[in-house]
Design a protein around this nucleic acid. Structure first.
Lengths: 223, 223
DNA sequence: CTCAACAAGATACTGCCACTATCCAGTACT
DNA sequence: AGTACTGGATAGTGGCAGTATCTTGTTGAG
């Protein structure tokens, strides 16, 4: 199909498709002549994925490019999952102005806290993982805001996160082709994470309501 | 203190402080003359909060303004929590081009799905809640991407979300002043939500590693 | 008292990002 | 032959988040 047809089928303006081509989010069509190329269903699907990542997942073009590249390079199933997980933008990717010594100390404290947490949970994660780094800088910032987690609190969250992750992986199970798996993983990570956030907010809302109704007393149905 | 001192204490450039004043993120100082104003500790704290929300929480200036306004208007504790929760930007705030009929149908299906979920969980939430709407459009989009949740799967996530929310509220408990509570809630919502996301990713990472080690077999320590 | 240094506020400018529009040869159908 | 459309290159747009400059006013050291 030609570009106009691709546009019609996906609802993406022709100019935007050209933009995505330039940005290498979308592979070029098969050229049939100097000014003519043929696009296929894979382009339709890729465009849908791009729209999902940018519009719903809120990813930038650059982040989307990384994620898509990770998908395309996926050769094994685990590789696919890992690559996608690393390619997705990490919340709170540090910022802190360069290091005076007070800064360095806060860094070390937060780092130790993270290491301790990982050990307590028996989670394996390389210190180079962007997630570990993100967690470290988040804890540092919370400390600065005087809102650090109480001891054990973070671990409690982590255990729940573990359960959520278990569900996530089950959702991704049963897909064998690495590329299809990577694509599924992107959706799970980028779209379903916000869904969980929404559920969490709804749950908070509900519990606030219950407490208000019960006049500040206990939350209803603690089990 | 004068603006330059405020800048020195917070590390925010003077020009940016002026920008925040213009954007009404920061209340004006107490004017002592036509070209002189006095700032206080509350300005230091507010600036810290602004930085946390924008740099860490990734909120836009407009979103930050809403959140801060919600904080300032908080008169009761529940009101504070609700206002903050609603003021924070909702992930995936819909997009879908206007309604052909296929569209409307998808809308209705997703809406019913959400209503059913809420009923099953016995959660109270008005249909006007931005979270309900966000959830609806997310489900719609997942359906379009052919990645909908299996029956019961969403409820399983929701139950975990409930546990997380319970932890959240405990974290916010014990603060009586509505404004302080609202501020705490903002931190919990905007900073700790990304923290949970990081934990989730780490947990996924760990489990993928375990499965790979166990050569695709079961996840280690399912309990 | 004077004057350099700083203050507040208004306005204008900058850089980045995600598009969007225009232009140019080069097909393709009729 | 002519019109409509194509791919590709390049330039322009609008929004956002600051940053810089300019004007007028204030202050405090000499």
């Amino acid at each position: 199909m030609k570009i106009s047809e691709l546009s019609r089928r996906t609802g993406v303006p022709v100019a935007s498709i050209k933009y995505f081509l330039r940005q290498e989010l979308l592979p070029a069509g098969r050229a049939t002549a100097a000014t003519l190329a043929e696009y296929g269903d894979e382009h339709v699907q890729r465009l849908r994925l791009i729209k999902a990542l940018t519009a719903l997942g809120g990813l930038s073009i650059a982040a989307t490019r990384n994620v898509l590249a990770a998908i395309d390079q996926a050769d094994s199933s685990e590789g696919a999952l890992g690559a996608v997980s690393y390619a997705l933008p990490v919340p709170m990717a540090a910022q802190s102005a360069a290091g005076d010594e007070e800064e360095a100390e806060a860094d070390a404290t937060a780092g130790a806290e993270v290491a301790e947490l990982l050990a307590a949970l028996n989670w394996q994660a390389p210190g180079t993982s962007p997630h570990v780094q993100g967690l470290t800088s988040a804890l540092k910032e919370l400390r600065r805001l005087d809102a650090r987690y109480a001891p054990g609190e973070l671990a409690a969250y982590a255990r729940l996160a573990e359960s959520v992750a278990r569900l996530d992986l089950e959702r991704a199970a049963g897909v064998d082709d690495p590329v299809a798996l990577a694509e599924r993983a992107v959706i799970v990570f980028a779209i379903c994470a916000p869904v969980f956030e929404l559920l969490r907010r709804l749950a908070q809302e509900d519990q606030v309501r219950r407490r208000a109704a019960g006049d500040g007393a206990e939350a209803a149905s603690p089990r």
